[in-house]
C-alpha cells in the first residue's frame, strides 16, 4: 500500500476531492446503468405474468391449473 493511513487515502495530498469525485460519479453511472435494465426486465416479466394469469382466468381455469397447463 502506498498510503500510510485512512486519512491520507482520503486526502491524497490535496487531490482527494477530485479523485474521489471522479470515482464516485463513475460508480453512480455504472450502478444506474446496471439497475435500469434489471428494473425494466422485472417490470416486463411481471406484466407478462399478470397477463397470463388474466388469460387463464378468462378461460375458466384457476391460476393453479394454468401454471401446469401445456403451452398451446
Amino acid at each position: 500500500m502506498y498510503f500510510e493511513s485512512a486519512a491520507a487515502v482520503w486526502h491524497m495530498e490535496g487531490h482527494g476531492p477530485y479523485v474521489w469525485a471522479a470515482y464516485g460519479i463513475t460508480a453512480l453511472v455504472i450502478i444506474l446503468m446496471l439497475v435500469m435494465p434489471l428494473l425494466r426486465s422485472r417490470q416486463m416479466s411481471r406484466a407478462i405474468h399478470t397477463e397470463e394469469r388474466r388469460r387463464d382466468l378468462a378461460q375458466g381455469r384457476t391460476s393453479e391449473e394454468g401454471q401446469h397447463a401445456p403451452e398451446a
Binding site: M1, Y2, M12, E13, G14, A22, Y23
Partner: peptide
C-alpha cells in the same frame, strides 16, 4: 489503482483518475 499504484511524479495523486478515464 487508488491505493497501491505509486503516484505520478509530475501530477501527484490526481493521475489516479486515469484508471477510469
Amino acid at each position: 489503482g487508488l491505493l497501491y499504484a505509486p503516484p505520478d511524479f509530475r501530477q501527484g495523486n490526481s493521475y489516479r483518475i486515469i484508471y477510469i478515464h
